[in-house]
Design a protein around this nucleic acid. Sequence first.
DNA 1: TACATAAATTTGTAAGATAAAATAGCTCGT
DNA 2: ACGAGCTATTTTATCTTACAAATTTATGTA
Lengths: 235, 235
Amino acid sequence: MRTQRGASLTYGLLETLGQSIVIGDFDKNGFPTEAELCIRFGASRTVAREAVKMLTAKGLLSARPRQGTKVEPIAHWNLLDPDVTRWLMERQYSNKIYREFTEVRLAIEPVAAALAAQRANKAEIRAIRDGLNGMRNELHDHDAALAADIDFHVAILKASGNPFFLQLRALINTALRISIGLTNKIAGHTASIPAHEAVLLAIENGDAVGAEKAMRAILLESLELLASFQPETAH
Amino acid sequence: MRTQRGASLTYGLLETLGQSIVIGDFDKNGFPTEAELCIRFGASRTVAREAVKMLTAKGLLSARPRQGTKVEPIAHWNLLDPDVTRWLMERQYSNKIYREFTEVRLAIEPVAAALAAQRANKAEIRAIRDGLNGMRNELHDHDAALAADIDFHVAILKASGNPFFLQLRALINTALRISIGLTNKIAGHTASIPAHEAVLLAIENGDAVGAEKAMRAILLESLELLASFQPETAH
DNA sequence: TACATAAATTTGTAAGATAAAATAGCTCGT
DNA sequence: ACGAGCTATTTTATCTTACAAATTTATGTA
């Protein structure tokens, strides 16, 4: 999922800086100079430069001689980069970003479900069903149920056959974790199994329109539940 | 749009390697070792390493000691990264990727248009109208008409108020350039002005459902036109 | 003041040395 | 022959130092 499994100095600094940038730690005093980075994080120039270069590649920074390194405005960030999405999740939750995530899901996932209904093979349908069964069997274990829920949605993205849709798995992962974190506060609430069953059934039957509607219903239900539960807050 | 305006050695090598990877130049012999990179491209280790690190940040490469640097499978690439999208465009056109692009557009743009109908302010509507007028006024100049067409679609993404939608501007840019490149081969064909007018009108009237349908019609029309014109080719 | 020139700051590039990781190969005892 | 453990090798990872380039600031001179 992330850029690399390894935890070298460079990737450690990448994580630290990425999170700090997303939180806004450098908004006041500006981004440190290369020399300051080395001092503050005990890194060599090589490590500092390579971490900055990777953050530049993700749109978070830009550097020019004499002018220094600057944090780019959020409009320039590669928001669909898995690392950036994860850093956004790890910072303080905000209703605004959850709504934005869900709007993206409302655009993508119903269309992906419709395509899956037209194209999914047996193995892909089995993967979707495994996700649903996991949700059924783990009603007691919130973490396991969440993992199964994510598996269900990602399996549909895969079954769509369009690799670009699959790129959004990190965002969906994030959105679902936020969603679950909130809905868990509502006593006894769990993801709606029947709604998920309806999506699977439509895909199995090759019913593109039905799959699209059923998936949209899941997302709208989740969105309305949250809206009714927690009023819009700042940010 | 791209990672950096500057044309330093590092960014030059980034471009060269990114294009080569996307084309598949390293599929046979594997990706060169750091030392080989320096020799083949006349770069210092610093430049070679930083370019590789940026490509790693975009999901195209991974590196481990002793094992070397390898091209990741396409499923791992950050396909929505503006640089990656541009490199994909610059390689040989293929019907498959055009269809995939259009599927993404069919998911995102109608929803963006619906949101724009609910939220767009006067300045944002003016930007959309400017794009449409540009298309009207530049019927003779294909390049200018294409630019106006792109402006029109990007203005709607902006007016949606969701920054994640705007991330797809590079993909839409690419898709439209491919589309225009093909439709220009059809004698006398130009983008349908009335269809675009319908979208603007619906947004101005706050008609979310109408805007969504009108935008979907534009994309479906474009897709069908191409399908009828050029039969599915390899890749 | 206006303009040219020098100085200072910060990133960009280069090169060499050493460390660490992971594979391949070898030695040796059984 | 076989396997455990050690050694060698390859390649990336890290550190250090030096210099170049770009750009802003300061300075000096007419």
